[in-house]
Every structure is written in C-alpha cells, then in structure tokens.
Design a protein around this nucleic acid. Sequence first.
DNA 1: GAGTGGGTAGAAAGCGGTTTCACACCCTAT
DNA 2: ATAGGGTGTGAAACCGCTTTCTACCCACTC
Lengths: 344, 344
Amino acid sequence: MGDKVTIYDIAREAEVSVSTVSRILTGSAPVNPQTKQKVDAVLQKYDFRPNRAARNLSYQRSTMIGVILPDITNPFFSTLFAEMQRHAIAKDYSLLLFNAMNSLALESEGLAYLARHQVDGLIFMGGRVNEVEPPPAYQQEIAEVAARVPTIIVNGEMLDADAVIVSTNEQSGIAQVVDYLAGLGHTRIGLLGGSNHITVTRNRQQSFREEMSRLALPVEEQWLITDGFSIESGEKTLEMLLRLEKLPTAIIAINDLVALGILKAARRHRIDIPHQISIVGFDDMYLASVSTPELTSVSHNYEHFGRTIVETIISRIKGGDTPSSILLDMQLVIRDSCQPPDSR
Amino acid sequence: MGDKVTIYDIAREAEVSVSTVSRILTGSAPVNPQTKQKVDAVLQKYDFRPNRAARNLSYQRSTMIGVILPDITNPFFSTLFAEMQRHAIAKDYSLLLFNAMNSLALESEGLAYLARHQVDGLIFMGGRVNEVEPPPAYQQEIAEVAARVPTIIVNGEMLDADAVIVSTNEQSGIAQVVDYLAGLGHTRIGLLGGSNHITVTRNRQQSFREEMSRLALPVEEQWLITDGFSIESGEKTLEMLLRLEKLPTAIIAINDLVALGILKAARRHRIDIPHQISIVGFDDMYLASVSTPELTSVSHNYEHFGRTIVETIISRIKGGDTPSSILLDMQLVIRDSCQPPDSR
DNA sequence: GAGTGGGTAGAAAGCGGTTTCACACCCTAT
DNA sequence: ATAGGGTGTGAAACCGCTTTCTACCCACTC
C-alpha cells in the first residue's frame, strides 16, 4: 500500500528542508506559522502519510500491542477484543491478534510471532496463563517476555512475572448469584463446568463455598462437576448430575456455553427449566438471549473491561505508574432462567 | 519488545562484515560454508531476529495483510478469520484485523488504518462490499485502494475494482436445500431473513426462485421476508409469517443466527420444529448444534475457504497470475431440524 | 555598537537492515 | 605467462523518517 511520495518530495515542493517537514509532522519543535502553512498545503495536496516502517525504525517502537488469546470464535474473547481494539485505535495504537486455536503449544509460537513484530506491549488472556499451577516452562517463558515488554495478564496468576494482572471479581459475581438464588428460596445449588486446573474455575468454586457457608447453606460436593467450558461439557455434566439420587434445584454454570449445553440436555430429558431447575450462566455472552428461557447470567462490562486493559498497557508502555493488579466487577443480569424451587 | 542486538553486533563478533551476515540471513547470495557456520553460531547464541521495521523499510513491504470485516463476534467471520490467520502465518504473513463494528462509516476508517500500516494486501469482507448497489463513493474508495494494493473481496461485487472476487456458490447451496426439502415432500417453502440490498441475500433469493421453478414448485412471495441477519431478525420474521393465513411447511433461514431466532419464536408459539415446520440454516456456525433440534445447515468448508483467500492474495502480492474470481462450494449438513411435512 | 538570546531552519547523523558495486582471489583456458 | 570467469567478501549507498547540532537572523540590552 505504497504511497510513493516521501518527506523529501514534500520538502522539495514546499521549498524547505526535510527537518522542517518532520517537525511539522511530529510537532516536536516550533515552526514559523507561514512556513507551516506552506508545507501543510503540500502535505494536504498529496494526502501525505509518513512511512510507518521508517518512523518505527527511527522511534524504536511499533505502536502495536500484541494480543494472545485461545479462541477468537468464543464470544467472550471476540467481544472483549472488539472493545479493546476500539480503544486502542482511539489512542493511536494497533492491536495485533494471535489466535492460539485452543492449543497451549501454539501460544509459544504466538509469543515468537509477536516478538518478531516487536510489539510495544503484550496482552495475554486465557490459555496457559489461566492454569492454576502453570508448568515452570510456561512461567519462565512469560516472565522472560514480561521482563522485556510491558505485559498484561488477564485472569491469570503468573506471580513471578512483572506483569499487570487484570482479573474479574469472581468472589463478588458468585456472591450475587448465590444470594439471588437463596433469595428465591433455593438451598440446593450445584456448580457445573470448568476445569480444576484453571484459575477462574478454582476461584469461583472457592467463592461459592465461602458464600454458601456464609448463608449457612450446605455444599454438596457431588454437585460440583467439572468437564470443560464448551456446550458439550454442559450437556455432559448435566447427564452426570442426573445420575445422582438427590438433585439440586439450581445450577450455576461456569459460563454461558456450558449453560446452553445444560439447557439442551435438560430439554432432551424433559426437565423443565426454570421450573424444575434454575440455571445461571457466566460471562453474559450475546448468546445468553438465544436460548429459551433466556439465560440469567453474570455479566462483564465489556466496554469497561476492554478499556481498562488497553489504557493500562498504554500507560505502562509510556512508563506511567500503574497498579500491579486490577479487579473488575461483574454484575448479575436477571432474565428468565431462574424461578423459586418446585414452582412448576 | 526490543532485542538490542543488531546485525552489526553479530558481524563484529563473527569477524565478518554486515553484508555477509545479511546474506546469510536472507540467503540472497552464496556464502562460504565455513564463514556461514561461524556466523550461524553467533546468530544462534543471541537468538538473533532482524529488526522488522528496518527490514520492512529496506524491502519496501510489510508482510502484513489487512482484513476488514463487519463483526468479529459473528461466528462466521471469527471462524473464517481463524483459518485465514493460520494459513497466513504458515506462509510468513501476518494478518492485521480491523473490526468495523457493523458500521459502514467505520470501514473508511479501517481502510485508512490499514493504509497507515502499509499492508501488502487487503481482504475485504462483509459490510459495504456486500451491498447490491454500493453508493458510488464506496465503489470509488474501494477501487482506489484496489488499484494500489492487491485486494480480495469476499462475497461482493464491486465490478469496477481491480480485485479478486471470492464468492460462495449460493446457487448450488440453495439448490441442495430445496432439493432436500422437496425430497422430504415439502412443496411450500419460505425464505426468511437477510436484506434486499445485500448481495448474498439477493443471490439466494434468485437461486431459490430458479430452483423452485425447476422443480415446478410455486414460490409464495409473502413467504420471502427480509429483516436482517440477527437472532432478533429471525424472531421477528417468524412472527410476521405467523400472521399469514397460509403457512409454509419448511423455512430456509438466511443464516444460522436467523434460524436460531426462528426456533426461539417458534417455541414461544408452541410450534413444533421440525414436525410442524422444518428449518434449514446457512453458514453452519458452531452454534448450529446448540439448538434443539440441532440445525440442518448449509456449510462452508471454512478451512478451504480461509486457505483460498490467503493463498490467492499472497499470490497476487507476489505478482502471480490469479483468477479474477473464485467460486467456493457449499455443502448441506443434515441434522435434526427437518422432517417430512405434517409428520407430527 | 558590540554582546546576548530567542526563534527558525538546514545539514547531517542515526535507526537496522538490504543490496549494488568493486575488488581480491583462485582456477581454467589460451 | 595472461586473459577470462567464477566465488566470496567488504565498503558504501540506500530505504524514509526523527533529532541533534549548528548557524543564521533579528530584536533587545547595556
């Protein structure tokens, strides 16, 4: 996409030196208004855009921020990415996305890919940073990267790395759900989906136990079943649940996809949701309203989420003082998938 | 992400000139095996990666391909993007994504954004290129861009532009659906969703009429209702359909989202899908299996689709001979949302 | 009326690669 | 012995922009 016109051409036509043109372009030094006007006219005439490679080479930066995420087809990530991109562009940064296709191994390739592009910052979400106890090799790879380039880790631990950790407040999210369900009269609540070695799952489980105990409600261990984050996981975990003698009256799903899977399996088993069992999802993907009944879900403020990530990393890039961790609130959004127990 | 070590450092340590190092890096000229070995060792030692900005400046290219699409949260686009990225990276190109957030106006900004990055190629999908009769301003903007940089337009017309047009074979897709439904015994078929000023919709409608007429089946005009591409559109169009006296026994939805909306509205009206009405979707998004019943849908071969786009544009970039248009087949995937008419 | 200083602007040196050009060296054919 | 032809290598120019260094001009002071 090569405009062939360079700053030299502009300088020649405007009868000034390249330095002057550059000064006008960057505003790095004052220029006589008349001179500026003359040059601006030429700039306009050619719709001049400085060559990015040259500028980056000189500046020693790329104004690109790398993003590694496990699956762009997952609405949680794509929605968040869209918001991040919006804010990044507004601040004259570009987002370079690497989609790891749910492969932890590919993430290393992604790191190399973004390093090759000399990104000024790195945003790491999902995948290996989500591991509860990441293998030392992961830890070290991330720590090395984070030592060289400002890094943000979304919902991960990686305590050794010099990165900003941005996390969602699972504790508050879970508390809202449990309180809501308890308020409806539920005392028998299950938690389905997720994975034991993933931070978010672990956090939600722990917060779940805490909040249940705070309300003096018993936690039935067999109602905590983990089997992943997909629609299929949802189906499978409900099947497993249904084999038990005693069933919960309400189920919290680890995310909306799992919730949709549960809904699907429930329909197959002619279980009436929400009258026989209430369901709450997490993440409030736009899919939450596809289902019948529409899903009650714990929502992120995606706009705020994306903006926080981007503003924080840009601030880090510019050497600003940033907190080393940020906690973002979640908000229960009530739709149609919950009812008082035994309300059929 | 700055490795501070440069080609000069390498040259010094290996006791050769930078030219020699560069030759080894690029393979642009033969180098004595012994020299090469010596340099390679130093290269390895520092895990040297040439500075991208410098290289781009010298090469006068960016090895980046820009992608403009209307909505990355739409599974059709995100799935396709993921495939494209995979193939692009395998061929040492990078994809720079611009998400236009469903705004035609933003697409111009996206064009400027990618131009600023001096992308070597441009892939334009959805949005304004999908318009049946794009306003002259759009036409011209795209034509200008396409004149300067290799461009691919996915599912659009833009006949004036010097771009490769990659399209999906709607004619064959529709024919498969109609034949399948007719084979089940359906004679009363509707086509819901989409938008009259969008190419794909127009093409599907036309192919629909053709295939129906080929089978000597009547087309009931009031069963062709367009109202967009979203889940909500699906709900709305079914509501409108239900107000008619005579109903079709099968509905083709313009895409899976619309189909999901139809399913949802049908459930609300206690219409049994597929026994009262059969439904077929389009695009075979991964969501097609969320629903109950699972959606029969016309599928893209996303892997092939993405690969074709990427390989074609790279070939164009390299000055290769490429066809000016490419047609990709679609394939009906049969699941559970169709039954013979009146089979309840 | 020489000295000081602020405002402008040009020359030139990077930034880190690639590539052209020139040359040295060695080998072969005359 | 000498011209001719590869090979392999270094020096230097170049890609397009930013920025430091330098110099000039023109008040303005003392």
